[in-house]
Simulated scan of single mutants.
Amino acid sequence: MPQEHSVPDVLPVDGAFARPAPEADLQSAAEALRSNGFTVSLADTPADARALVAGLLPTDRSVLTATSETLRESGIAEDVDASGRFRSVRAAQADWDLAARADEVRVTRSAPDVVVGSVHAVTLDGTLVVASASGSQLAPYASGAARAVFVVGAQKVVADLPTALRRIETYSYPKEDLRAQSAYGARSVVAKVLVYGREVFPGRATVVLVRQAVGF
């Protein structure tokens, strides 16, 4: 008999949040981020961001890639985790029984030397906003990692914090929910939100703003 396949539940998506912000907004966000203690670079394309990030990452320190469509689509996740050039946390744990070693996974992924990931929104006043179901990437983002690198598509630049939260609920979350159903057979949820408004340690956090849309 043919196997039955469940049809994913599809939440409505606000397509307005898929449009890249204009250059003037990118420049405003970049300047505000710098004022808030972040190091900022702009890249024209995801390929340019990929090359830039490869040059930023150390080859002699542990690097964790957060689960991110931005990193997957741009090829950054593949560079870090599969090239052999970097000391990838995920590559080192590829043959682990993650459930059996859950405490080790939690500790090592909470405090790598470097975390590379993305966020769901950047406001014009220079605040990064990211949502999570488990919160696993929020610890290294906020303080666990000695350095953090965020790669952010232009469609994620928004006016303010309320708009950032609305973008999460009506765009990023529905897309992640669909991805989670396909990848894990489970629904996602917006359980924890990090509002990262300032970096007090100079040089710790770098934001690479991409002039094209990448990720969600």
Rank of each mutant, 00 (worst) to 15 (best):
V40P: 03
N36S: 07
A51T: 15
V157Y: 02
G15R: 14
D25S: 11
R90V: 12
A164K: 00
G203L: 01
A186D: 15
G185Q: 09
V105S: 05
T70D: 03
A205N: 03
A51Q: 13
V105R: 08
F150S: 01
G84P: 09
D25E: 12
S68E: 04
V214Q: 00
S132P: 08
Y173P: 09
M1C: 14
R19A: 13
P20L: 05
K156A: 06
R106Y: 11
L52M: 08
A29S: 02
R87M: 11
E69H: 15
V80D: 08
A32T: 07
A121G: 03
Q181H: 14
A51I: 13
L194P: 02
K175F: 06
L33G: 06
V208D: 00
T70Y: 03
S28N: 10
L124K: 13
Y141F: 13
D95K: 11
F38W: 03
G215Q: 00
P22M: 04
V115G: 04
L128T: 01
S188H: 13
R211K: 08
R167T: 00
D79G: 09
R109E: 15
H120D: 09
A102P: 12
D177Y: 10
P58F: 07
Y171N: 00
R87Y: 07
K156M: 05
R34A: 09
S88M: 02
A54Y: 07
E4M: 13
D95F: 12
L57S: 01
G75F: 02
S118C: 11
F201T: 15
E31P: 11
R87H: 12
S110A: 14
L194C: 01
P202M: 07
V157F: 00
D125I: 10
A77Q: 14
P46R: 01
E169G: 14
V193I: 11
V210H: 06
V10Y: 07
A24C: 11
A16N: 14
A29R: 02
V80H: 11
L64K: 05
F216W: 08
T39M: 12
L52V: 06
L57A: 02
P112N: 07
A82P: 11
A145G: 05
V107D: 15
Q181R: 14
G215Y: 00
Q93C: 09
V189I: 14
P140Y: 02
T127D: 06
R50H: 09
S68F: 08
V200T: 12
V207G: 06
S188P: 10
A99Q: 11
P162K: 04
S136C: 12
S88K: 01
R34Q: 09
V152R: 00
D9A: 15
P174A: 01
R90K: 11
E23S: 15
V152M: 04
R109Q: 15
V193T: 12
G135K: 03
A82Y: 14
M1L: 12
P202W: 08
E104Q: 11
F216R: 05
V122D: 04
R211M: 07
G126W: 00
Y171C: 01
V13G: 05
G75N: 05
R50Y: 07
A92P: 08
R187D: 12
T70P: 03
H120L: 01
V119R: 01
Q155N: 13
A146P: 04
D113S: 12
A191G: 10
P20F: 04
K175L: 15
G197C: 08
F150W: 05
G153P: 03
D60M: 08
Y196R: 02
R179L: 13
G185M: 10
V89R: 05
